[in-house]
């Protein structure tokens, strides 16, 4: 049962994330390809690539292949986790710059943001080294009863919650004041994704009690959160590429 949840959710995530990222890089209207990555909105493509790769790495045969070349057993889990955290960091940076939030810029972009990611990454690696995981196990699911593995998962959840808490205020404000319905809904979806992630991080002690059986069930929350954010971002992209703002908000005198 849990395996099927994992397979379905990972497949879904790969389709959504991979599809969106592939579309962003290859769409006909702006066929920029890899050059897109050099532009500000390229951060999202980079985020998509990182998240997709992180998810691909957790697929059993791929995981085993990569892990057989690792210097530490199950180092692939740590790398996948760091890729996912980097993707979240890119998202945070992108939204902080886009919303022009001073607070978010101060804590997400530059030295503080890099330091937070570095600390989280080092923490994840340290936790992996402290654990005893001789067999290949994607996401260390086979060793969830070990405190070091639990700490490793907690670090990822906490880092994601950290980024999303910082962005909560500007996204919340935009979800109320954005004059365009489509992007207002987009902001609300992003906000919902944030709430799910922050909620999961806060509820981690209770989640531990339900482990290991309910691990994939809780993972679905994070995946639902990612899907909400991706769809929310897509709404902004759609608004931009289709000029929805100019269609729906004409800067003309009102006609009665």
């Amino acid at each position: 049962m849990t395996d099927s949840i994992h397979v379905i959710s990972i497949s879904f995530m790969l389709i959504v994330l991979g599809g969106a990222t592939f579309h962003r890089l290859t769409r006909k209207t702006t066929p920029e390809g890899a050059r897109l990555l050099l532009r500000p909105s390229g951060r999202l493509a980079l985020m998509g690539i990182f998240l997709t790769v992180a998810n691909v790495m957790t697929v059993q045969p791929i995981y085993e292949f990569i892990d057989s070349h690792m210097f530490v057993s199950n180092g692939t889990s740590a790398i996948a986790q760091i890729l996912a955290m980097t993707a979240v960091s890119l998202l945070g940076m992108h939204l902080a710059i886009s919303y022009k939030s001073d607070f978010a810029l101060r804590w997400m972009v530059g030295l503080r943001g890099a330091l937070a990611l570095l600390v989280a990454s080092l923490g994840a690696f340290s936790a992996l080294i402290a654990s005893d995981t001789p067999e290949h196990s994607p996401r260390l699911v086979g060793y969830l009863d070990q405190p070091a593995v639990q700490v490793m998962h907690w670090i990822a959840l906490t880092y994601i919650a950290y980024v999303m808490s910082i962005l909560f205020r500007p996204v919340f404000q935009d979800s109320h004041v954005n004059p365009l319905r489509l992007t207002r809904v987009g902001s609300r979806l992003i906000l919902l994704g944030f709430v799910l992630s922050i909620g999961r991080a806060l509820a981690f002690p209770w989640e531990l009690e339900a482990w290991p059986h309910a691990f994939y069930g809780f993972e679905v929350i994070s995946q639902a959160s990612a899907v909400c954010v991706v769809i929310g971002l897509w709404m902004f992209a759609y608004t931009r590429t289709h000029g929805v703002a100019r269609q729906k908000l004409p800067d003309k005198l009102p006609i009665d």
């Binding site: 500000p40 909105s41 992108h94 939204l95 710059i97 886009s98 919303y99 935009d174 954005n178 004059p179 365009l180 992007t183 971002l233 709404m235 902004f236 992209a237 759609y238 608004t239 931009r240 590429t241 929805v244 703002a245 100019r246 908000l249 004409p250 800067d251 003309k252 005198l253 009102p254």
Partner: peptide, 24 residues
């Protein structure tokens, strides 16, 4: 009043376009 409304509409459009451009 009309000038104020027009200004509000322009500001709303500018806000929505800039944000969509930045995020999307």
């Amino acid at each position: 009043l009309l000038r104020r409304r027009l200004k509000q509409r322009k500001e709303a459009l500018e806000y929505a376009e800039k944000l969509a451009e930045a995020i999307g």
